Amino acid sequence: MNRVTVMVRYRRGVVGESRRTVHLVVLPASLADVPDNLGAVCGARFGPGDAETVNSPQGMPCVQCLAMAPVR
């Protein structure tokens, strides 16, 4: 199954600003298969409506996600 890696962070107001780091989430390539609950590479969990996508590198990255990033 093909997968894509996306950058997400908690939406403003869900957690404090210091916890709004940018995480890496590996998803199925098919949008029909995106789960309601997302799990980041580092283990952070995002419930429905808790996350927003980050389309360009911005904000503080999650160091654990970077260290564990899936690479080809």
Rank of each mutant, 00 (worst) to 15 (best):
V22T: 11
G16M: 14
T21S: 00
R12V: 07
R19L: 13
V15A: 05
N55V: 05
E52W: 05
A40M: 06
V34Y: 13
R45F: 06
S30C: 10
R11L: 09
S18G: 09
Y10F: 14
L24E: 14
R20Y: 01
T21I: 05
G39C: 03
Q58M: 11
S56K: 11
P57N: 11
D36A: 12
R12P: 04
R9H: 12
G13H: 07
L38I: 03
N55T: 06
R19C: 10
A44L: 06
G43F: 02
G13V: 07
V26A: 05
G49N: 06
A32E: 15
T53I: 05
E17A: 15
R20S: 01
R45S: 05
G43N: 05
V34S: 07
V22E: 12
E17H: 14
L24D: 12
G39I: 07
R9W: 03
L27F: 11
R12M: 08
V54N: 01
R20G: 00
G49Y: 09
P57C: 07
S30R: 13
S56M: 12
G16Q: 12
G47V: 03
A44H: 01
V41Y: 01
S18F: 15
R9G: 03
D36G: 10
G13Q: 04
V41C: 00
R11E: 07
D50Q: 12
A51S: 10
H23V: 13
S18C: 12
R11C: 08
R45Q: 08
L38P: 02
N37K: 14
V15R: 06
L27I: 13
R9L: 11
D33S: 14
V8T: 01
L27V: 13
V26F: 08
V22P: 04
T53C: 09
R20D: 00
G16L: 13
V15F: 07
G39V: 09
L24P: 00
E52H: 03
R19N: 10
R20L: 03
V34N: 10
L31T: 10
R20F: 04
L38E: 02
P57Y: 14
C42L: 03
L24Q: 13
R9Q: 13
D33H: 15
R9Y: 04
R45H: 09
V8A: 06
G43E: 04
L24T: 07
H23W: 12
A51Y: 09
P35Q: 13
V15P: 02
T21V: 10
G39E: 07
G43I: 03
V22W: 12
G13L: 05
L27N: 11
V34W: 15
T21P: 00
G47I: 02
P57M: 11
V34T: 10
A51E: 04
T21Y: 00
D33K: 15
A32I: 12
V54A: 01
Y10P: 00
V54G: 02
S18L: 12
H23S: 04
R12H: 09
P57R: 15
G47Y: 02
Y10S: 02
Y10M: 04
V8I: 09
C42N: 02
S18V: 15
A44F: 01
N37Y: 13
V8H: 05
H23N: 06
D33C: 07
V14W: 04
V26D: 06
R20P: 01
P48H: 12
R12Q: 08
P28C: 09
E17R: 10
G49D: 01
R20K: 01
G13E: 06
N37A: 09
L38G: 02
G39M: 10
S56A: 11
D50S: 03
